[in-house]
Simulated scan of single mutants.
Amino acid sequence: MRQIFLGIGILVGLAACTPAAEGPQPHVWTTLDGQPPLVIAHRGASGDRPEHTLEAFRLAISQGADVIEPDLVMTADGVLVVRHDHYLSTTTNIADLPEYADRRRTQGDREDWWVEDFTLAEIRALRARQPWPQRDASYNDQFLIPTFEEVLDLAAEHNVRTEPEVKAPGHFTAIGLDPLPVLVEILRARGLDTADAPTAIQCFEPDFLARLNGEVETRLLMLVFPMIELDTEADPLTPTVSLEDAATFADGVGPSKALLISADGDDTGFVTRAHALGLAVHPWTFRDDVPVSEDMDIDAELQRIYALGVDGVFTDFPATAVQVRDAMSDG
């Protein structure tokens, strides 16, 4: 098994032989390495800026995020660009550009514009938009769609980690745009193909991660969600890939938070089982503006998840996750 995903920073030292009554004691983290959990900026500070823009990533870094997370899709000319979906209507202004009106087509059950039909030069003509209706739209149509390498440049400049997710690699491979060799080339060129590199690659498709595991030593994160979303007869706490299977090729798991706490609010034991297999746990996604329930705000939700011993959290609002974590660290 390769080196486990390590957090950044140093472990708070134990108080020097003084009575506990003299002040609060440092929080003892039950993460895999005993470090405070990582705050992972999900698509950047996507709650405050259009997602997957350099501006969203810069804001996340300024808010104290330890890791920035770009999703990767492929252009027609084989360039990895940063978008969550490979359709473009929800996060860009493409519908307003008459020169691309005839490029809209149906794929599956969706009619849209698709990134694989556009070259990088054409993608550069687009501008990003905020897809969430309740969020600030005042930055719409201002920011470019970045390439993966531009996000890596930004991360290196600010000395933060990255956790890129390869989206729908099976689809892209099927149409002749296999992202794996391009990804491997970029990782190797930047010295990010080692177990101690400041990055980890995520994906929902185990076959892709297993292939990647044979090419590089970069840490891998298997993304999972409840199998019941695919099979209504499944146990709601069964993940799409078992922890035992994930441990054969990955260094960590990125579970839906629904797998960590039961409907009754109890710890499911997912984190403990993952840690026993040497897997780091980075659950998703924590959002200030999407409350879990009327009885639990985002601070309470993060406190509950941190207390389980997770090794990182994906969040659209890094400032909040940093604030809650730091308050717990201070006791």
Rank of each mutant, 00 (worst) to 15 (best):
T240M: 00
T92N: 05
D288L: 06
V182P: 01
R190L: 10
E55V: 14
V313N: 03
M74Y: 04
I4K: 11
A210M: 11
A16Y: 00
F118G: 00
I40Y: 10
E150T: 13
A274E: 04
A197R: 10
R110A: 05
T315P: 03
G312A: 13
A189M: 01
T119Q: 08
E244N: 07
W113V: 04
L302N: 01
E150C: 13
P179T: 08
R287W: 06
A247F: 12
E69K: 14
G312T: 09
H171A: 02
D231G: 09
R83A: 02
R104P: 00
L80R: 09
S46Y: 07
N159V: 13
D316A: 01
G191D: 11
R135S: 07
K257T: 08
T91R: 01
H84M: 08
E99N: 05
R83N: 04
G7R: 11
T162G: 05
E55N: 05
I8G: 11
I261L: 13
G23M: 02
H84R: 02
L180W: 01
T248K: 13
R304N: 06
M74W: 07
E217I: 02
S46E: 10
D109M: 05
T18K: 05
I68A: 09
R83T: 04
L302K: 01
V310E: 01
T147K: 11
A56P: 11
L209I: 04
L154F: 08
V115D: 03
D251V: 09
G34S: 05
A300C: 00
V310I: 15
L277Y: 05
I201P: 02
F249D: 02
A319I: 09
F143H: 13
F317R: 07
L14Y: 01
D207P: 00
P239W: 03
V216N: 04
G309Q: 09
R124A: 13
A95F: 00
D264Y: 08
H275C: 10
P239A: 07
D141G: 03
H52Q: 13
A319K: 09
Q107K: 12
L221E: 08
V322S: 10
D326S: 06
L260W: 02
I61A: 06
E233V: 02
E233R: 13
D141H: 12
L221A: 12
A247W: 11
V324E: 02
A327V: 08
R104M: 14
D288F: 00
L80M: 15
R105M: 02
F286G: 09
H282K: 12
D117N: 15
A200N: 10
G312K: 00
E229S: 05
G312L: 06
E294Y: 03
V12H: 06
P26R: 07
Q63A: 08
I40W: 10
R103G: 04
G108K: 00
R135G: 01
R49K: 15
D33H: 11
Q323P: 00
R58A: 15
D109Y: 06
V216E: 03
D136A: 09
D251F: 02
T285K: 03
D193R: 00
E51P: 12
E157A: 15
H275R: 11
T248Q: 14
P26H: 08
V324H: 12
S262I: 09
P239E: 02
D109H: 11
D71R: 12
A174E: 13
P206K: 08
